[in-house]
Design a protein around this nucleic acid. Structure first.
Lengths: 137, 137
DNA sequence: ATCTTATATAAGAATAATTCTAATTTAATA
DNA sequence: TATTAAATTAGAATTATTCTTATATAAGAT
């Protein structure tokens, strides 16, 4: 696991620091779309002196390199997602709960769409799909 | 036009006030996904004493009633959209530019999807699609 | 193993979008 | 016209995030 993150950092030309390892571990272990505050709280248990700014910096760096994904929904702060394979999000505006959702039909539609559809003056890079609704408890 | 907004407010059980009329006019006239600051600047030209809090309140109220839509993308403040028919957004992470995009194929896919797909413990209310890429100048 | 240097981190101040508060005003209805 | 619930104002408060500057450290070169 630690070997893994070292490798990822190296591949991306980033120095291996304890802070970056901690942030990476936090995101992969927390799984449920934590925000910066969640991540900071988690890390501080083992690493009480990490600076808030460092966590924000690290999250930005990771997002720029594509190591994690940033996600913002209406009416909530930035959240982060360490899952690497194509997936979608279910979320409820009321509860702010977010769950991952995998769906092959959507995958296919999107792949087709990106391949076929031409939009004047615009190059499609990605299509993001959010499914809004209500969780039943 | 003013008759129109009066009617909308009445239908939604909202008092008709000059501030609400001004906010509504701003959104419909500005068309390109303004944020609160844009809207405030626009309104202040004709109505210099409107309170910022009032504009935020009004936008929230309108969004709750479904009169307008709120939209937030990663790395940008909240924006507002007065367009009433189903559409999608093209946007570029770099430029923060957002354009409306209409696509019947996506409409159909979404309608089908909502009708057919059952997700355990979740009731689908809406599906939002964002097309990410680059504008060619 | 040590030196060098570009890069990363810490700590806290600064920023800026949004929300809150409490007093005042106003739209709608009787 | 009087009543009252709802809306507005003005500015303070909040809070997520960014910025600043001094210090520390990882990685490669010696």
């Amino acid at each position: 696991m630690i070997k893994n993150i070292r490798q990822i950092l190296n591949e991306n030309g980033l120095k291996v620091t304890p802070q970056r390892i901690a942030v990476y571990e936090a995101i992969t272990k927390m799984s449920n779309h934590p925000n910066a505050e969640n991540i900071i709280d988690y890390i501080k248990k083992k690493y009480p002196n990490i600076a808030i700014g460092t966590v924000y910096n690290t999250l930005d760096t990771f997002a720029e390199k594509g190591i994690i994904t940033r996600m913002k929904t209406n009416g909530d702060v930035m959240r982060y997602d360490g899952v690497k394979h194509r997936h979608y999000h279910l979320y409820s505006a009321d509860s702010k709960r977010i769950e991952d959702y995998y769906d092959e039909e959507i995958n296919q539609f999107i792949s087709e769409f990106i391949r076929k559809r031409k939009i004047p003056n615009f190059t499609i890079e990605d299509v993001s799909v959010q499914i809004i609704g209500k969780f039943e408890k």
